[in-house]
């Protein structure tokens, strides 16, 4: 039974190459918790900005009539990966985990796998 802070700390320590993690409410754009980041990556700004990414994708899917859920969204930069995982558990719809990874150090498949288990940690 993790609280949000320990779940985010787990993400920070167990996933290789993590720069920062945030748990974000995507209607308000507020980060309910952040860890890591720093002056090069303001996680509160990233949280608010990425709500637009999620909303655009949700909207596109609705326009296409795709009856499916978004599991995660990957954005690949020159030197970083940004991974957005939408939480689907009870009472957590409307939240996503946002993960910034160093591209040189990260293993993307492992990171996605571990993010899934961190989501499970946030469950009952």
């Amino acid at each position: 039974m993790a609280n949000t802070e320990t779940a985010l700390k787990d993400a920070m320590t167990s996933i290789e190459g993590v720069i920062g993690v945030a748990l974000v409410d995507y209607t308000s754009g507020m980060a309910l918790g952040t860890i890591g980041g720093g002056k090069d990556l303001d996680l509160n700004v990233a949280a608010a900005g990425n709500t637009d990414v999620v909303r655009a994708k949700v909207r596109t899917m609705e326009m296409l009539g795709l009856k499916d859920e978004i599991e995660d969204i990957l954005i690949t930069l020159g030197t970083q990966y940004h991974l957005i995982r939408l939480l689907s558990g009870r009472g957590k719809s409307g939240l996503f985990l946002y993960l910034a990874l160093d591209k040189n150090r990260a293993n993307l498949a492992m990171a996605r796998h571990q993010l899934r288990s961190i989501e499970a940690d946030l469950e009952v």
Binding site: A2, N3, S28, M30, L32, R90, G91, D121, L122, V124
Partner: peptide
């Protein structure tokens, strides 16, 4: 009493607080 997990309680409470 195991009604909510620590994380869920925190998330919902912070949401109500803000």
């Amino acid at each position: 009493h195991g009604r909510l997990s620590g994380a869920e309680l925190e998330i919902r409470h912070l949401s109500a607080l803000y």
